[in-house]
């Protein structure tokens, strides 16, 4: 920048800078808030659950089939003398000497004790995924509301 340019630059600092209306920021920000709300709505509409409906149906059918198979395959219900988790629970119920309750309990437990542990694993994993999926969906929704406000 030469001397003349510099002098001209100093002089130019005196030019008038116009200002928009006093509520300019408010107007712009209200348009931006509306824009953000629209963007957020699209984000929620585009949200894909971790597990799709199709997968849930397949999982459910697989579980039902497994249960049917176990029931039809003729496995005798355990009478409380078996080993394992459910047997341990039924054993402890016996100790309470509640004969009627314990007989109903044992019947119920007998069915469960015949179910292989893999079925419990599938059920637990599915429930865990479903809980995580619902939590993520709710968290995303809450986060979007916070950002818009």
């Amino acid at each position: 920048m030469n001397k003349l340019d510099k002098q001209f630059g100093e002089m130019m600092k005196g030019i008038r800078i116009d200002a928009p209306s006093s509520d300019f920021t408010v107007k712009v920000m209200s348009r931006i808030q509306a824009e953000a709300a629209v963007q957020q709505r699209h984000l929620l509409q585009d949200y894909q659950p971790v597990i799709s409906k199709k997968t849930w149906i397949i999982l459910f059918i697989a579980f039902v089939l497994l249960m049917v198979y176990i029931t039809v395959s003729g496995t005798e219900p355990a009478s409380g003398t078996g080993t394992g988790f459910w047997s341990a629970i039924s054993g402890s119920v016996d100790k309470l000497r509640m004969e009627e309750v314990s007989s109903i309990w044992q019947k119920g437990m007998g069915i469960f004790s015949s179910v292989p542990s893999i079925a419990y694993l599938i059920l637990t994993a599915s429930l865990a995924l479903w809980t995580l999926d619902s939590f993520l969906a709710r968290f995303k929704h809450q986060a979007s509301e916070l950002h818009v406000n």
């Binding site: 800078i17 116009d18 200002a19 928009p20 300019f24 920021t25 712009v28 920000m29 931006i32 808030q33 953000a36 950002h147 818009v148």
Partner: peptide
């Protein structure tokens, strides 16, 4: 943080 944009609007609007 949508509100943070108002700083940039204030600063550069003129």
């Amino acid at each position: 943080n949508v509100q943070a944009f108002s700083y940039l609007v204030e600063k550069y609007q003129k």
